[in-house]
Structure formats: C-alpha cells, structure tokens
Simulated assay, not measured.
Amino acid sequence: MDSLLPLGQVAAIGGAVAIGPLLWWRQRSRASTSTGRLRALTALTLFLTFDLIVFGAFTRLTDSGLGCPDWPGCYSSASPVGAREHIEAAQAAMPTGPVTHGKAWIEMTHRYLASGVGLLILVMTVLSWRLKRLEHHDGQRERVPSPWLPTLTLVWVCVQGAFGALTVTMKLFPAIVTLHLLFGVGLLMLLPWQHEAYEPRPLAVPQTLRAAVVAVLVLAIIQVALGGWVSTNYAVLACDEFPTCHNGQWWPALDFAQGFQLWRELGHRAGGGFLSFEALAAIHMAHRIGAAIVFTAILGLAWLLRRHAPNWSRWLLAAAGWQLVTGLSNVVLDWPIVAALGHTAGAAMLLALLTTLLARLKKALP
C-alpha cells in the first residue's frame, strides 16, 4: 500500500496539470459537433504529446533521468519537496551526480506532464465510447469513427508509462530507454491518424505513391530508433567532425558488433568491461548512414508529391532540411542542448507529418 500512495499522488498532480487544457478545450469547442469536439481534444493531446517528447529529450540531455532514482515518486514522496533531505544527502555526496534538486524537479515535471497526457487520452477514450453508444439515437446522425483506436492509444500510453518506470528502475538501461523513446513517438503517430479519422480529407493519388509514403515512414522510424540508440549511449560526439568522423578519418576503426549489443548496461559491454570508442563510433556512423538514406528517400518522395500534393512536398522538404541542419549542429558545435532538442523535435514532427499524409492517402486512386 505504501508504494501505491506516491502513485496516486503523482496521478493526482497529473490530473491537476490536465485540468487547464481540458477547460480550454471545453470552452473553445462548445459550439462544435460531438465529433468536432473529439477531434479538437485529439489535436490538443497531440500537441501536448509532442511537447512531452521534447521535454523527455530535455530530461535525458540534462542527465536528469535519475534525478529521482525511484518510481513513481521521488524517494517515496510525490515531489522533490518531500524528498529534500534525501536529495541534499545525495547531492552532498556527489555534487555533479545524477541526483540534484534541479534534476529531481526536471524528472518529476516530466512524470507530471506524462500523467496529464495520460488523463487526456483517458477522457478521449471514454468520450469516444460514449459517442459511439449514442450513434443513431436521439436524432444523432453524425458519422462516428470506431472507438477502438482511442482505446489502443490508451493501452499504448499505459505501456509507455511502464517503460518509463523501467527506465528509472533499470538505471537508464540503453535498450529500455530506446524503447521508451520509440513508444513515445508511436503514441505521437497514433494521435494524428486518429485526428484524421474524425474529419477525413483524402488525397487522390496513385497507389504507388501511398506505397512510397509507407516505405519512407518505415525508414524514418528505423532512423529514429538509431538516433535513440546514439543518444542513450552518448555516442553523439564519437564522431566530432563533418564530413569526416574523427581525426580527419572518413571511416575510422569501428566495432558494430559491440556497439549493437542490445542487452547491456549503460557504458558497458554485454560480457563485462567498458564500451570501447570503436563501438561508440560505430553507433554514430550507423546513424549517419541512416540519415543519408532517409534524407535521400524524403527528397524522392517530395519530388513524387510535387504534382499531387505540392504543399506536402514543401513541408517534407522543410522537415528534412531542419533535421539536416540540427543534426550537423550537434556534431560541429559539440552537441549544444538547443540543437539536440531541435533535432528531437524535428524527428517527431517528421513522423507526425508522414503519418498524417498516410492517413489522408487511405483512399488512393488505382
């Protein structure tokens, strides 16, 4: 029971965080139809989920992932205020360590925001089932999308929360942290698909173009996974030059086998000992190669879209350009936090754009 108390308290704070957005949504969508209100709530949740992903990157980049080394509370308290003595003791023992007052607040703020997003998704799911039950009753003639997609989104965010817990309890285990990131962007992809279901706006394009969007989306997801692996293993500066990697070398000694041992502790090899520089450079170079492939694929997709959906072509080119600039800035400017956050935000935006585009191509021409 003691372990459930901080969970309930953190959830309550998350509920308080969600009250403001819910009140704003209720006020702004008062005159809308039922499906219009659900669509507006989905858009709001999508926006806040995007913000949550960026703040999650900020948490990782400031080394705040273990700012509170237990879960769901902070030293069994709902906030760092109640854990002040524990935090001060940890900070005194290791002033630049993982536990400080600032890092504890960053970590707990991330948990509060995640709880708030979870509550919004719960409200969205309940409303979608309620709307489905009311379909064709009391004179309602609105087209109501299936409530199973919001339900999947709710289950998904619960699993994402479980991986968030494992991220802390398993001390930033790289595979778990990367999966936590992937579930976060997966949640971001579910929401625009759901948003489009409430007001379909199909684009008439050849079927082959839809296949091209699917292919680019798959490549982008793989690239995000590689980016997560780079970040969680702190391999960004293993190659500190561009276009060369290190010491003027285009292709230095690389150890892909060691770098892509998935089940191991942070900074260590699976069989024991520290991860080598060659392994970190291999992780970085894999991401660079993936970036070149994805960038080329987006250029090709934008060219194919230029006649059927010119606006989408321009948006994808802008997203690809943003990723190129922020990615290069991470290397040549020694990984500044602004560039790193911009790179994460750009990756999330690119996946959201591709998912929305795919949702609108569901009724493609033969």
Rank of each mutant, 00 (worst) to 15 (best):
N311M: 14
I19T: 12
R314E: 15
L7H: 08
P69N: 08
D2L: 14
A286R: 14
V168W: 03
R133M: 07
P174C: 10
E135D: 15
V325H: 10
A90N: 06
L341V: 08
T244K: 10
G300P: 09
F55H: 05
H343S: 05
A339H: 04
P95L: 15
R307Q: 13
F274C: 14
L217D: 00
G346N: 00
G321P: 11
A270V: 13
F183G: 13
A270E: 14
V54Q: 00
K103D: 04
C158P: 03
T208W: 14
G300V: 06
D334N: 09
G14R: 06
P192I: 08
R306I: 12
L358Y: 00
D334T: 10
A175E: 07
E199S: 12
C245P: 02
L209K: 00
W105K: 04
N330W: 01
R306T: 12
H195K: 09
L38A: 02
L191P: 03
F47N: 05
W251A: 12
T326F: 02
R39N: 02
R133S: 08
P310R: 07
I293A: 13
R264F: 10
A220M: 12
H287P: 08
E88P: 06
L166Y: 15
W156G: 07
T167Y: 08
I283H: 08
G67V: 02
F163C: 11
L188N: 02
A40F: 02
A114N: 04
T33S: 10
W335Q: 01
A165M: 15
R60Q: 06
R84C: 07
I19F: 13
Y198M: 04
D138K: 09
W193K: 03
M285N: 12
L317D: 07
V213Y: 05
L179H: 07
A292I: 13
A270T: 15
K103E: 02
F173W: 11
L316N: 01
R60N: 03
A291G: 15
H343N: 07
T178L: 11
T232R: 04
Q194V: 04
G82W: 03
M1P: 15
R143L: 01
V214K: 12
L317W: 15
A43Q: 03
A225W: 10
H137Y: 09
R30P: 00
L122E: 05
P366G: 04
G20F: 14
H180L: 11
M189V: 11
L226C: 12
L188F: 14
P69H: 05
A225H: 10
H268Y: 15
Q323R: 09
